[in-house]
């Protein structure tokens, strides 16, 4: 009986010492990723984020960015959302949103996280083919 008790305590102790699963990223993720082709035609002039307080007390991450066009151009953008452990949180759709900009125009775009557990994001800007 005593041996069984000791064995159980040893097992429990070992389990407590077990290392947590590795969640190290392979490379640092950037919040903003802009393709080189886009840089020629426009500039990202602002990138804001804030947490929207919901009536029930939850908060949702919201991102707003502004782009200023140097020439008439088209833009495709997409926000990928991540939780605290770096796992992707699925949004409504997975496609890029498209926008048209005229020379000199500054446009503001907003995206709201699909769940309160979202803590970070990656915004990707590219030129549609």
């Amino acid at each position: 009986m005593k041996i069984l008790l000791l064995a159980s305590m040893l097992v429990l102790g070992l389990a407590g010492c077990a290392s947590p699963p590795e969640t190290r990223p392979l490379s640092e993720r950037q919040n903003l990723k802009v393709d080189p082709e886009v840089v020629y035609t426009m500039a990202v002039t602002e990138l804001f984020e804030k947490r929207l307080v919901q009536p029930g007390g939850d908060t949702l991450l919201q991102v707003q960015f502004a782009v200023e066009a140097r020439s008439d151009t088209e833009l495709a953008w997409k926000v990928t959302w991540f939780d605290d452990s770096g796992m992707v949180v699925e949004g409504v759709g997975e496609g890029y949103r498209k926008a048209t900009l005229v020379t000199g125009q500054v446009r503001y775009f907003k995206a709201t996280a699909p769940h309160a557990r979202v803590t970070s994001y990656q915004l990707h800007l590219r030129e549609p083919k």
């Binding site: 919901q54 009536p55 919201q62 409504v92 496609g95 949103r97 709201t112």
Partner: peptide, 26 residues
């Protein structure tokens, strides 16, 4: 399908951001 995806994304993000679908009673 891209049009439906755009409309659904716009609607859901706006609903969530407005707080209209968040139950204050939990």
């Amino acid at each position: 399908y891209r049009d439906f995806e755009k409309a659904a994304t716009d609607a859901v993000e706006d609903m969530l951001a407005s707080g209209a679908v968040d139950n204050p009673d939990g």
